[in-house]
Amino acid sequence: MTRTARRRAALLALAVVAYAIAAWAVAPGFYDGIAPPAPYRWVSPPPQFRAANQPPLSGHATIRVNNGRVDPGSVFTQDGQAAISFTPGAFVAPADGSQVTIQIAPQTTFPDPRDIQLATNVYCFTSTAPLGSGKDALITLQYSSGLPAPGDVYMYEGNGPWRKIGNTGSAAPFYIAARTTALGCFAGGYPRNASQAAGARLGGQTLPIIVALAILVVVLAGIPLAVLRRRGDAGDEDEG
């Protein structure tokens, strides 16, 4: 390998490392955002979003039963803000072989979350058949890009209380997901006493700013340096 080739390979490797650090600092990482995210539809919008807020939408679907097993599928609200995904046989098949109906509805009233700061609407998921024993489903919730991201998904059944069911992460920006073994009502949130939300686990807001500044310095300082070096090289050639 020539010296030039080694230099190119080394700089390429450096770019890979820089990308890995920057992309790890913000979930999901590289995101090209083909279309800008639609504004979040709030049940009770924070003051800054009140003027332009649209009400959130509900969703429902019927799932077929084949050979005694409920088909796999995903059910979304019409605005895409809440979804449930499940594998074949996750729901108990009705004895009469009828289809399973799943509904998702945003809630206006819910138990006091106490020490949890909710960062999304509360969505209740209901179905005409329960989840099977040892089976689970994936709940995915969108959150607003204008507020701190939720750190976990919380749920309650019946009249509460709220409990944390975790965060499996999501490859889509502004979405949080978690697995559940029972249906109920779900929301994204974080502890009220936490100084930061989900971002803290992924490096907080400080790391992205530091990485941004570092890249900005390299880019902005590098351009004039490169031009000066080019001119210097040309000057040397002229003198030679």
């Binding site: 700089l11 770019a15 913000v26 995101y31 090209d32 955002g33 890249i215």
Partner: peptide, 26 residues
């Protein structure tokens, strides 16, 4: 990408650009 992305995503966008640009050059 400054208009389409929240500021916290821009470092990753810049780093992806740097990686793709470095490949193009190397």
């Amino acid at each position: 990408h400054a208009l389409s992305h929240p500021p916290e995503f821009l470092p990753a966008v810049a780093a992806a650009g740097l990686l793709l640009g470095a490949w193009r050059w190397a």
